[in-house]
């Protein structure tokens, strides 16, 4: 079963985790054979939003829809047996600390 871990950082709080923590976390997931893919995202100021209206017109705007307190900073897709295993990996993710949060979403199977 695949789950996406959406890693949100609190915009008003500095995450104390170091690059080494993230590298160690990635290595642990790879060694356990659960990591499908994962990336961290560039700074929010680099984000651009695209919407296409009913008339087919494209609108391109700077940034995301709204300023939110929590900013999506990256994601991981993992393949594990059940939700408890996914929650365990979410708790190990450095992004879950210091006011950050990891949202666990099962990937839909069709």
């Amino acid at each position: 079963m695949k789950y996406m871990l959406l890693i949100y950082a609190a915009s008003d709080q500095q995450n104390s985790c170091t690059v080494e923590d993230w590298i160690a976390h990635e290595k642990e997931m790879k060694d356990a054979g659960v990591l499908v893919s994962g990336h961290s995202l560039a700074d929010l100021v680099t984000a651009t939003t695209v919407q296409v209206g009913p008339d087919g017109r494209r609108s391109v705007t700077d940034g995301p829809f709204a300023e939110t307190r929590e900013v999506l900073g990256g994601y991981e897709i993992i393949d594990v047996p059940d939700l408890d295993a996914a929650l365990e990996w979410a708790a190990k993710c450095p992004g879950s600390r210091d006011g950050g949060a990891v949202v666990v979403r099962p990937i839909a199977e069709f």
Binding site: M1, P81, D82, L83, D84, V104, P106
Partner: peptide, 10 residues
Amino acid sequence: REARIPFRVP
């Protein structure tokens, strides 16, 4: 069912 909450004793 869909998030696969397991049937297990912690």
